[in-house]
Amino acid sequence: MSGGLIAFFILAILTLGGAFFMLNFTKVVHMAISMALTFLSIAGLFVLLEAEFIAFVQVMIYTGAITIIALFGIMLTRHDTDDEEKKRPGHKFFVFILAAVLFGFLFMGINGMVSPSEAQLAEQNTSMIGQQLFTNYVIPFELASILLLVAMMGAIIIAKREADK
């Protein structure tokens, strides 16, 4: 067993454990910490894949910004604790079946992938990401930025309406 394999198993357990705890905790702060643990573990998996830029972006954007934004959003909104207890009885079974189907699709997709040679992965991955993003995927990139702008404007409008009441 190599060190990389041991690190992969540790990071995989941390990723799955963080996701599991995020779904099963009831306090919002505990859920956010579990989500941050999951994001950090995913960044570690990117480091194992020698995708340092993606790992850095994962830590900066998801672990930092998204976790903080989620905490602010949840803390600033009003929600009743009674609604959380009135879940449907078959909800967990349905979610388990849906997760198993998703796992099956992902497993088949990953097994069907053709992996590039290791030399291609390690060489200039940041510049290759930039070239692909701004040549082949510029339209989806711009559409995602417009979507985020519209979501931010909607959040401001909703917050302003609640403040006026």
Rank of each mutant, 00 (worst) to 15 (best):
F20W: 14
D80H: 08
A70H: 05
L48V: 02
Q131M: 11
V28Q: 05
L102G: 15
N111M: 09
V29A: 12
I69G: 05
K160F: 12
N111I: 04
F94H: 06
F96K: 10
M35W: 01
G130V: 06
L102C: 15
A65Q: 04
A122Q: 13
F8S: 03
A100K: 00
S117V: 08
V101S: 11
L71V: 10
A12D: 02
F21G: 01
D164Y: 06
G154C: 11
A32M: 10
I69Y: 05
A159R: 05
F96C: 11
E123Q: 14
I146R: 07
I156T: 13
A163D: 05
E142F: 15
I158T: 13
G130T: 02
G109E: 05
V138A: 14
E162L: 12
S127V: 06
L23P: 02
F103P: 00
E50Q: 15
G64S: 06
T81I: 09
L45N: 04
F25T: 04
F103Y: 12
I97D: 01
I13R: 07
H79V: 05
M75F: 07
Q124C: 08
K92I: 10
L40I: 06
K86I: 02
D82I: 07
L37I: 14
Y62Q: 05
G90D: 07
A155T: 09
F134N: 06
I13K: 08
F141L: 13
F72N: 12
F56N: 08
Q124H: 15
M108E: 14
E50N: 15
L76G: 14
I10E: 09
L149G: 15
M75S: 11
I69Q: 08
L16E: 13
F8A: 08
F56G: 13
M1Q: 09
D83L: 11
S117N: 11
F72D: 04
T135P: 01
S2H: 11
A163Q: 07
T15W: 04
S2Y: 06
T15D: 04
G73E: 03
F105Q: 12
